[in-house]
Structures are given as structure tokens and as C-alpha cells.
């Protein structure tokens, strides 16, 4: 088994220390950082996403995999930067104002990182104004908005409306998600994409980038 295959396997198993060890081994063997990312981490996280969608694994196992991937990425990132490897897209993600829940948002962020995106995590309880400021400052390709509560899902619409009112809507693709949201609701409020779960977020984000 090659070092990258072994890496995929350990990302899926959520074995953090082994993933770090294998990342170092791959670098020591002279593999290109981009190859380690694209043939090690990305397919590993794709398997994790598929297993999650097929109910083979659940959130705890997904968290373990994401954490392992992140630990490996931390080691790899300086080499990617040095080699001039750009992420496939930039994303700002946050939970809307009034909502302090972050586990879903964190999982989406980790899956997107594992999918090759640069992710700027704004955190929780983020106002429309703060999202607008972040978009102006960081210039992401996609803004991801999350809400867990039925009481805060309306805030997602408020953020989208604020972007429209301030003439910023055309500058950004907006993707939404969270337990009370549905595809119909996301269309109704004018979002560009809706992700029903963390695993689908990567494909939807890639789709939005190509539009």
C-alpha cells in the first residue's frame, strides 16, 4: 500500500497521529504537496462524506476524520504555500445572529477544507453587517450561512436581504444549511445553494464555483 493510500485509510479511520506521521513520511519521500493533498486528504475525506451519506458512519466518526485531516493539513499547509498551490476556492462560513450552535457549521468547514477550499470561519452569532464586512475584506467566492434553530433560520434571509440592499449580492455566491432549512426555503429566500448535510457541501460548493 502506498503512503497516500495509507493516508486515505487513516483519514477515514480518524487516526490523527498516524495521519500526521504519514504526511511527514510523504513529504520526506519527496512527494509534491499538491499530490499529497489531492491524492491523500481529498479522496480520504470524499470516502468519509460518502460513508456519512450512506449512514455507515455518523457525526462522531466524521469529527474524528476531520480532526485527523486538519492535523495533517497543518503540517502540509506551509509546503502548499511555498509551492504556490492555491486553494480551489475561498469560503467564509458562520452561524447567523442569535444562534450559538456550531457543530454543523464546523463539520461543513472541515469537509470544505478537506475538499481543497480555504475556509475562513467567522464563528457563531454573526450579524448581517459582520458578514458583509468579512466578504468585503476577505473577498471569498462563497459565503456559507448556518442556522440550527427554527427561531434563527429567518436571520439567514435577513443576511441575504442585507447583501441585496447594499448592492453586494452579485459579488458573492451564498450557500445555506442547517437542520430547519429545506431546499425549497433556500430558493424562496434567494440563496444560490443549499446543502442538506456536511458531506454534500463540498460538491455543492464546487458546483457554485463553476457557475
Amino acid at each position: 500500500m502506498s503512503v497516500l493510500e495509507e493516508m486515505q485509510e487513516n483519514v477515514v479511520a480518524g487516526n490523527e497521529s498516524k495521519v500526521v506521521e504519514l504526511t511527514q513520511k510523504a513529504l520526506d519521500e519527496g512527494l509534491a504537496p499538491e499530490k499529497i493533498l489531492n491524492d491523500g486528504f481529498v479522496p480520504g475525506m470524499e470516502i468519509v462524506g460518502r460513508k456519512f451519506q450512506e449512514n455507515e458512519i455518523y457525526v462522531p466518526e466524521m469529527l474524528m476524520s476531520a480532526r485527523a485531516m486538519k492535523a495533517g493539513m497543518k503540517l502540509l499547509e506551509p509546503f502548499l504555500t511555498e509551492a504556490g498551490i492555491e486553494p480551489i476556492g475561498k469560503i467564509v462560513i458562520g452561524t447567523v445572529k442569535g444562534d450559538l450552535h456550531d457543530i454543523g457549521k464546523n463539520l461543513v468547514a472541515m469537509m470544505l477544507e478537506g475538499g481543497g477550499f480555504e475556509v475562513i470561519d467567522a464563528g457563531v452569532d454573526i450579524s448581517a453587517q459582520k458578514f458583509m464586512d468579512l466578504v468585503k475584506e476577505k473577498k471569498p467566492d462563497i459565503l456559507c450561512l448556518s442556522a440550527l434553530l427554527t427561531t434563527t433560520m429567518g436571520e439567514i434571509k435577513n443576511v441575504i436581504d442585507a447583501f441585496k440592499e447594499n448592492g453586494l449580492r452579485n459579488d458573492i455566491k451564498i450557500m445555506v444549511g442547517g437542520a430547519p432549512l429545506t431546499d425549497d426555503y433556500s430558493k424562496e429566500i434567494g440563496a444560490d445553494g443549499y446543502s442538506p448535510d456536511a458531506a454534500s457541501a463540498v460538491d455543492i460548493a464546487k458546483e457554485l464555483l463553476s457557475k
Binding site: 480518524g14 457525526v59 462522531p60 466518526e61 469529527l63 474524528m64 480532526r67 450552535h101 456550531d102 457543530i103 464546523n106
Partner: peptide, 11 residues
């Protein structure tokens, strides 16, 4: 913490 509980379940 919700995320920590999830990790704890597995680890």
C-alpha cells in the same frame, strides 16, 4: 461541549 461529546463518543 456538543462537538467534544461527539469526539468523546468515538475516542
Amino acid at each position: 461541549g456538543a462537538q467534544e461529546a461527539g469526539l468523546m463518543a468515538a475516542r
